[in-house]
């Protein structure tokens, strides 16, 4: 049971990163390789405020606001000129942006991990003198991730805004012909995605065992990216389910398999999943160029 709780706790973080990638993909058909770094940078901005005496929730709110702003700014300044260019251009630019953000964060805040103090205890619950690998902090982590995931899924599936966001990504010209303000929606898609990633980064920065450093999101991004690809890149549900799956598999392998296997198991899952369903497990698209 402990493995399940630990697996879910990590899995929701992968799911959140995957979800933020899916939002950007669904709204602009771009893979944002700087997703993790953008979340890291916004989390640092929020964390800086804690040294001015602000509490956890105020810092969280500032990080979220910074995430929204950074997402919008990135779309307007860096991404918009790339829409009509070959896909490789956006990949190169976003990888370059990842490097820029990580270098800037190291220069401003140093590479030493920092922790944002959270109001939730990280001591595991006990039930009849048995320790359960679940703490109030882990519960906060799981619940906040699930709230974001549900909200994003509901926006895309049930709201007019979500319908317009999807139309703007799938057929921007047609959407414009129907009066959809495509440019505004693309900016909003990036803002939403960036904020979802920030939730993961703030949780990581509050975790006493990890803390925030300029490159901390790289590993989470890789597993989040794998989860998004397994889920089908355009499926929020797929991203979440695949994130949880990776978290659980990693946790079980960590405990029951030779050391090291848990790190590359997600890649094997990705290869097998894409061999069975190249479009991803939850995608409704018949095929996709990768």
């Amino acid at each position: 049971m402990s493995d399940v709780f630990l697996g879910i706790t990590n899995g929701v973080l992968y799911g959140l990163i995957a979800l933020s990638l899916v939002i950007v993909w669904r709204s602009t058909s771009i893979l944002n390789f700087a997703q993790g770094a953008m979340a890291m940078f916004a989390a640092y901005l929020g964390m800086t405020m804690s040294s001015h005496g602000l509490n956890f929730w105020a810092c969280f709110a500032i990080a979220l606001a910074a995430g929204f702003a950074l997402g919008g700014l990135t779309e307007r300044v860096l991404v918009r000129p790339l829409y009509k260019r070959p896909e490789i251009n956006s990949i190169v630019v976003m990888v370059g942006f990842l490097g820029l953000l990580e270098s800037a964060a190291a220069a401003i805040w140093s590479t030493a991990p920092r922790t944002l103090e959270s109001p939730f205890s990280q001591i595991y619950f006990e039930h009849h003198s048995t320790t359960i690998s679940l703490s109030p902090f882990a519960l906060f982590q799981i619940i906040s991730a699930l709230v974001i995931m549900t909200a994003v899924g509901a926006i895309f599936r049930y709201t007019n805004l979500g319908l317009q966001l999807r139309a703007a990504a799938l057929a921007p010209e047609v959407a414009r012909l129907l009066g959809v303000r495509v440019n505004r929606l693309l900016t909003f898609g990036w803002m939403l995605s960036s904020a979802a990633g920030v939730v993961a980064a703030v949780v990581i920065s509050s975790s006493g065992s990890i803390g925030l450093s300029p490159t901390i999101m790289d590993g989470f991004f890789v597993y989040g990216f794998i989860a998004a690809a397994i889920g089908g890149l355009e499926s929020p549900v797929g991203a979440v389910v695949a994130g949880l799956l990776i978290g659980l598999v990693q946790q079980f392998l960590q405990d029951y398999a030779p050391s090291g296997i848990s790190s590359f198991a997600p890649v094997i899952i990705l290869v097998v999943a894409l061999m069975i369903r190249p479009q991803g497990l939850f995608s409704t698209t018949k095929a996709r160029r990768v």
Partner: peptide, 16 residues
Amino acid sequence: IAEFTVLENLRLGSLA
């Protein structure tokens, strides 16, 4: 929009 249902296509047309 091939990925949308008939209803979704029509709803999109009515929004603006």
